[in-house]
Simulated assay, not measured.
Amino acid sequence: MRELLLGLGMAAAASTALAADYSDDIHKNDYSWRQFNLMYAFDELPDTSGNDHDYLEMEFGGRSGIVDLYGYIDVFNLTSSKSSDKYGKDKMFLKLAPRFSLDGMTGKDLSFGPVKELYISTLYNVNGGSSNDVNSAFVGLGADVEVPWLGKVGMNLYGLYDMAEHRQDWNGYQFSANWFKPLTTFENGSFLAYQGYIDYQFGLRPEYASSSTGLANFNGLYWHSKRYAVGYGLKYFNNVYGLDNGIYNLKTTGFGHYVAVTYKF
């Protein structure tokens, strides 16, 4: 649910923003990565009051032929502390975001201008043990886009299908983008990076949401070495998940804070 994209950013930083080339071997650019993020969230929304909790994030991703994959599993309240706002609630959350290269599937260079590669993009969010919990699927079109100063940015435009038992219906759209920008490199090879993402939902249906839009925007500053990363992220929420601020006595607009320590495998 936090989507720090630390490892994904490392891979993006290592690659050049060139058009995809599948002319000889679709696996020549394969790679994989995985890492553990020990995290703490302060004032996460939506909530009625302070939403502070620890969690362990097992994050992974990579590339295999036409498939570009990102995902993570969050495990909340590791010590089962009764003082945590996650006590007695779902312990785990899963996000999977496989994208399938249209360049690779067609065998053609579909790049144009700043767009370096096109994808069929999918995204799955699942938590809890009940079919009425978060259980959503997104499908749409994605692209790797060269953006001035930021470099390569992954962009996706999805339609949302809510698979929860009480809905099972289409419900609006989501635009997502993520980036990773190295800022400065130190003498020992470690570096400082600006990384983040934006998820903007729109066209949400009134029978399923009190607001037609919802926004989450994460901006982080992280120090990276070969095996470790440490950082802080500021996240802005606005009617997040399509919930009007104040509805059900929930705060859905404001700022949350995240700190993380990462070990990279």
Rank of each mutant, 00 (worst) to 15 (best):
L6I: 13
L6E: 06
G7W: 02
M10K: 13
M10L: 14
M10Y: 09
A12I: 10
A14I: 09
S15L: 08
T16K: 13
T16V: 07
A17Y: 12
A20M: 02
D21S: 01
D25E: 07
I26P: 03
K28T: 07
D30S: 01
R34P: 03
Q35D: 10
Q35L: 14
Q35S: 13
F36K: 11
F36P: 05
L38D: 13
D47L: 01
D47C: 02
T48V: 14
S49Y: 11
D52Y: 11
H53T: 10
Y55T: 08
R63F: 12
R63H: 14
S64F: 07
S64H: 08
V67I: 11
F76A: 10
N77P: 02
L78H: 03
S81A: 14
S81D: 14
S83L: 13
D85N: 13
D85C: 10
Y87E: 10
G88T: 04
K89A: 11
F93H: 13
F93I: 01
L94M: 12
K95Y: 13
L96P: 12
L96G: 10
R99L: 09
F100I: 14
S101E: 09
S101Y: 10
L102N: 04
G107F: 03
G107N: 05
K108L: 09
K108Q: 11
D109G: 12
D109Q: 12
L110E: 01
F112L: 13
F112R: 02
G113Q: 03
K116A: 08
Y119K: 00
L123R: 09
V126A: 10
N127R: 06
N127V: 00
G129H: 06
S136F: 12
S136G: 11
F138Y: 13
G140W: 00
L141F: 05
L141N: 02
V145T: 07
V147I: 15
P148N: 03
K152F: 06
K152S: 15
G154F: 08
G154Y: 07
M155C: 05
L157E: 03
G159C: 04
M163L: 15
A164L: 05
H166S: 13
R167S: 03
R167Y: 06
R167A: 05
G172Q: 03
Y173S: 04
Y173A: 00
Q174T: 06
Q174V: 08
F175V: 02
F175W: 14
L183T: 04
T185D: 02
L192E: 04
A193H: 07
Y194L: 09
Q195G: 15
Y197Q: 15
G203N: 02
G203H: 03
A209Q: 11
S211Y: 00
T213H: 13
L215I: 05
F218Q: 00
L221I: 08
Y222S: 15
W223R: 14
S225R: 08
Y228D: 11
G231E: 04
G231M: 03
G233S: 11
N239E: 04
G242P: 01
L250S: 00
K251T: 11
F255E: 00
F255I: 00
V259L: 08
A260P: 04
K264T: 06
